[in-house]
């Protein structure tokens, strides 16, 4: 990704916060979740540790949030407001399985 100006970063930050605030204002935010640093480590069977995030695919996970909704459709609608698509990202919506 090309280097972004501070202004662009700021504008993106606002979009994220407005998206998250909108979900919270509907009382559907369970946890704002976290953003992740881009680097990472991967552990595989046999105690094989490799550097870097999981790279079988180009897209790595940049962050996650936990929301509540009555249906997948509703969850998907909330996810549509996520600003990640602008930079070519995608959102995976998964239902939580209480442990």
């Amino acid at each position: 990704m090309a280097a972004r100006t501070e202004e662009e970063i700021h504008a993106t930050g606002k979009k994220w916060m407005d998206w998250m605030g909108g979900i919270a204002a509907q009382n559907k935010l369970v946890s704002k979740g976290n953003r992740l640093f881009p680097n990472g480590k991967v552990v595989k069977p046999g105690n094989v540790v490799t550097d870097g995030p999981y790279t079988e695919i180009k897209e790595t996970i940049g962050g996650y949030s936990i929301i509540k909704s009555d249906s997948y459709e509703e969850a998907v609608d909330l996810a549509k407001g996520c600003p990640i698509y602008v930079i070519g990202g995608n959102v995976e919506v998964r239902e939580i399985n209480e442990m």
Binding site: K14, M17, D18, G21, A25, N27, L29
Partner: peptide, 28 residues
Amino acid sequence: WENILQLYNRLLQIEYSPIAALNRTYAL
């Protein structure tokens, strides 16, 4: 108003309340 909006965005993430949700929308 931009600052107030961002603060409400964060407040709602810590603790939801209907009044905060309404005020956030006004700031928006």
